[in-house]
């Protein structure tokens, strides 16, 4: 009883701990830590135009995770001493970024033009940073090099890269690597056009996986057989019973009779008590065959 209560307390403790952890994660604006700066354009003269038809600097942010994450509630700034400079409004579905998706902000110092227009410009900025909803946790920071070229964006070589460079093509809202990529399957078949490589590798892996299972189970089986054997051995040695090699039919019959009598004597008389349970069948005329079907003519 005490043991059960302890187990209950233990499980309750784990549940509370999990609830606290999940709660604290929510406090950090879902998985906002998955966001990264991906591309920026500081000097926009004839590059992309915003929804007001103007050329402004822009910042592209990438959701590196494989689930939708909302950026609402986080902060963007060009001044690390003022991390809460621009608050990204919450409750707007437009700030939800799809898995591996992008979101673009216009750094035009025109915050009255909508939630994607920031209250600072990039022309004189040295750094930009993204802070979490608590305004303290730094999610990502980018030091902007001074030698920015007009209409040439600065971004990661590809979406997972740590390396940044001036990009030949500006790609706001898209992957920075615009070259055609071959799928994994196409690459595989280039090296293995007849499928023999795939067959060999795959059969090897399937065999390995099941062979490991076989080896483990062979040994587990042996262990259990040995254990059951040793239990029998212990039983026979402790009680020091002589091993009877052959038992006659009479002996077997006597043992069976003794067991039968023993079972009869110890039998619970409850099984002679009959319990009659009423089986009710409620009549319903809707499916009655008497009223709804005519007799088949013979």
């Amino acid at each position: 009883m005490i043991m059960q209560i302890r187990i209950k307390y233990f499980l309750s403790g784990i549940l509370i701990l999990l609830a606290v952890i999940s709660g604290s994660t929510k406090a950090l604006a879902q998985n906002a830590t998955d966001f990264r700066f991906n591309e920026i354009l500081v000097l926009n003269d004839s590059n992309y135009v915003d929804d007001f038809g103007e050329h402004s600097s822009w910042i592209e942010i990438l959701n590196t995770s494989y689930s939708s994450v909302n950026l609402g509630g986080c902060y963007l700034t060009d001044d690390l001493s003022n991390p809460t400079k621009y608050w990204i409004p919450t409750g707007d579905p437009a700030t939800s970024v799809s898995p591996r998706g992008y979101i673009v902000f216009w750094a035009d110092n025109q915050p009255t033009r909508g939630i994607f227009h920031l209250n600072f410009k990039l022309e004189n900025a040295k750094t930009i940073a993204l802070f979490d909803a608590n305004g303290k946790t730094l999610i990502d920071k980018l030091d902007i090099p001074g030698d920015q070229t007009t209409d040439v964006s600065f971004g990661r070589i590809n979406d997972n890269s740590q390396k940044w460079k001036k990009l030949e093509h500006s790609t706001p809202g898209a992957n920075n690597d615009h070259n055609r990529k071959e799928s994994a399957g196409e690459k595989f078949v280039q090296m293995d056009p007849y499928g023999l490589g795939m067959t060999m590798i795959a059969m090897f892996v399937v065999f390995s996986a099941l062979a490991i299972l076989y080896i483990i189970y062979k040994n587990i089986g042996r262990f259990f057989i040995r254990r059951s054997g040793s239990v029998k051995k212990d039983f026979t040695t402790k009680s020091k019973r002589p091993v009877e090699e052959v038992m006659s039919g009479e002996v077997n019959a006597a043992i069976a009779m003794a067991l039968y009598l023993y079972q009869n004597e110890t039998h619970d008389y409850e099984n002679t008590v009959l319990t009659i349970q009423k089986v009710s069948r409620n009549y319903s005329p809707w499916s009655s065959k008497i009223y709804t079907l005519r007799k088949t003519s013979r």
């Binding site: 499928g195 023999l196 067959t199 795959a202 059969m203 065999f207 099941l210 062979a211 299972l213 076989y214």
Partner: peptide, 16 residues
């Protein structure tokens, strides 16, 4: 168990 692995040859035969 290993027979179950060998019979997967059909998958890769069809793949080729």
């Amino acid at each position: 168990i290993l027979i179950g692995a060998a019979a997967q040859l059909g998958i890769f035969g069809a793949y080729c």
